[in-house]
Design a protein around this nucleic acid. Structure first.
Length: 274
DNA sequence: AGTCAAACCTGGGCGC
DNA sequence: TGCGCCCAGGTTTGAC
């Protein structure tokens, strides 16, 4: 479900509401979503802790708790983390409920049950699989045209799978990768080390642009995504190619095509993307 | 290094 | 209505 703009929107909505609240209790309805420690230990450790901050790294949410603990959440495809008033009906597929000091709840709902939770001391964050090896944050100052040019030159893989590789750039997923490649005018199967300087610059701008616009629209709700208050985003209205095979490319009018690359559906315009 | 398929799950959409 | 198939904002693992 969520890529960088969605997780960022969730982070912002939750940070505003959860900061300074204390977790009074936790109900684990589906134990397998707790990656570490054991479900019993997880409950024991989390109860009584205050939420000091809510952050994001790539597609991971990081809730900083008192006593130096960090609650790490990855929503994978259909996970939703929603701040809810008490008494609100409990949706199907609710797997975890935190009871908060203001009587509200933080509920985790996940149809496909792929999402995972970790509760670790801040100094052991590297123990969270995937987190330690994350690549550069594309909206940070570390992500520069020079960095992108240099990295592209080193790699022989195709652009689409490369953009999905979280150890390269963290936060892009299937939607924003396709949208960035369309804006850059680059074919998703282009070999990374064949890009010209101008093409690398176009890709850099396109990645930045599409993520920033995604955040400004509060994410893409093509399916299940909602923010930390249960609200949908609106970037689905601005998509140019994702999920649009057969429909006219907004730039040239020719039909958008679909391709399978790296095991993922890939949408692109055969006319505009070379 | 890169590519691919399968695995983890439930549910929606479509053709018949 | 129902069955069977394909599809889905992600990641990991194991094989070639």
């Amino acid at each position: 479900m969520p890529e960088l703009p969605e997780v960022e929107t969730i982070k912002r909505t939750l940070k505003e509401r959860l900061t300074d609240l204390t977790i009074r209790g936790a109900d684990i309805l589906l134990p397998k979503i707790i990656q570490t420690p054991s479900p019993e230990e997880f409950c024991r450790l989390v109860v009584g802790k205050k939420i000091l901050d809510v952050g994001r790294r790539g597609k991971y949410l990081l809730l900083s708790l008192s006593r130096g603990l960090v609650l790490v959440v990855h929503l994978r495809m259909t996970g939703q983390l929603v701040y809810t008033a008490p008494g609100a009906p409990r949706p199907k597929h609710t797997h975890l409920i935190f009871y908060l000091s203001n009587a509200h709840q933080l509920r985790y709902t996940d149809t496909r049950q792929f999402g995972r939770f970790w509760l670790v001391p801040a100094e052991k964050l590297q123990a969270v699989r995937g987190l330690k090896d994350l690549g550069v944050e594309p909206l940070s100052g570390e992500f520069t045209v020079d960095f992108l040019k240099k990295e592209l030159k080193k790699r022989r893989t195709r652009l689409k799978p490369l953009l999905l590789n979280q150890t390269f750039i963290s936060g892009l997923g299937n939607i924003y990768a396709d949208e960035a490649l369309h804006r850059a005018g680059l074919h998703p199967a282009r070999q990374a080390n064949t890009l010209t300087t101008a093409e690398a610059e176009a890709l850099f701008r396109a990645i930045r642009e599409v993520l920033e616009e995604g955040i400004a629209s509060r994410g893409t709700s093509v399916r299940d995504y909602v923010d930390g208050t249960g609200q949908a985003g609106s970037f689905q209205e601005k998509l140019r190619v994702y999920g649009k095979s057969g429909q006219p490319c907004p730039r040239c009018g020719l039909a958008v095509a679909r391709l399978r690359l790296g095991g993922r559906s890939t949408y692109f315009c055969p006319e505009c993307q070379k």
